[in-house]
Simulated assay, not measured.
Amino acid sequence: MSLENQSALSSSNLSPYPLSETETGFASTTERGAVYHVDFTSDSDYLPETPFADSVYSFSILPIAGSIDQKDPRIEPTIVQTLHVFFDADPKAILLYVCSTENGQERVRSRLFGQWFSRHQKGFDKFDFHYAEQRLYMSAIVRRDLPQSWRVELAIMQAVEQTK
């Protein structure tokens, strides 16, 4: 993954925090000293019977250190930039995101991520899989130009249904 073309992708004047590459993704440090990691993990076992299994990844946003500011407006453009860098490196990637159930806030996390996506969706599709009774709020993001992306949505839906 290359950091050469980092740019402010926010629709506002807020710029993303600078990214540094880590072994598993990227890290950024906020003005208040909070360190966040955005990690990407191969998730080929999730859809093993599909032709695109090797393109499936999951990502997580992890606060690592420092004082976490829930209202930091620069986090959103930083995450968006990170995802763009990831997809630039692997345009055929299928990126899964499962909202943490910590503190019972999975629905809130899903809604927030949906808002971010709707502001920055140009060139991407997001498929949502919400199962409130299992507290599962999951999404898949693909580039809009991914051939037959509807197959990705169907394969994930079938995989989720099998685990219910």
Rank of each mutant, 00 (worst) to 15 (best):
L62A: 11
G25K: 00
D125S: 11
D69S: 08
H130D: 15
I64W: 00
N103I: 09
I61E: 13
T22N: 04
I61L: 14
F129M: 05
P91V: 07
S118K: 07
E23H: 07
V80A: 08
V56P: 00
D45W: 04
E31F: 03
F124T: 14
R119H: 14
P91E: 05
F113M: 14
I79P: 02
Y131D: 15
S55A: 12
I68Y: 03
R119W: 08
S67L: 12
G123K: 05
S58I: 06
V85P: 09
Q121I: 12
S60D: 12
R119N: 10
D88C: 07
S110H: 03
T24E: 06
Y57K: 02
R107I: 13
T82P: 07
N103Q: 15
E76F: 03
L112Q: 13
A34N: 05
G104L: 03
A93H: 02
V35G: 01
G114L: 02
H120Q: 14
P91D: 06
V98A: 13
F52K: 05
I64N: 05
E76A: 15
T29P: 05
N103T: 15
L47W: 00
E49F: 04
P77G: 06
S118N: 10
I64Q: 09
I68M: 09
V98Y: 01
R74L: 07
Y57T: 08
H37F: 02
D72G: 12
G123L: 10
E49M: 08
R74N: 13
D43S: 10
G33H: 01
H37C: 04
E31C: 11
T41A: 11
S42D: 14
D39G: 13
Y36M: 03
L62K: 15
T29R: 02
E21S: 12
K92P: 06
H37Q: 07
F52R: 03
A93M: 03
F113Q: 07
D90C: 13
F129G: 10
F113N: 08
F86D: 09
F127I: 09
G66Q: 04
T30A: 03
S20N: 11
T22R: 02
Q121H: 14
L83N: 08
L96F: 05
V56H: 00
F117C: 09
Y57I: 10
Q105P: 09
L19F: 04
L112S: 12
Y97D: 15
V38L: 10
A27R: 02
F117Q: 05
F86P: 08
Q105T: 15
F40K: 03
F127M: 09
G33R: 00
E23Y: 04
E49H: 10
G114H: 02
P63E: 04
N103R: 12
G66P: 04
R107F: 07
P77H: 01
S100K: 03
I61N: 08
A34R: 01
G104P: 07
R119G: 13
S44E: 10
D90N: 14
T82R: 01
L95M: 08
R111Q: 04
S118L: 07
D39W: 00
F117K: 05
P73T: 06
P73L: 02
E76C: 14
T41Y: 02
F87T: 13
Y57A: 05
Q81L: 15
L19A: 10
A53I: 09
Q81C: 13
T24F: 01
T41K: 04
I94E: 00
V108Q: 13
S20Q: 11
F117W: 02
I68Q: 06
I64S: 08
D88Y: 02
R74W: 03
S28L: 05
S60E: 11
V98T: 13
L96S: 07
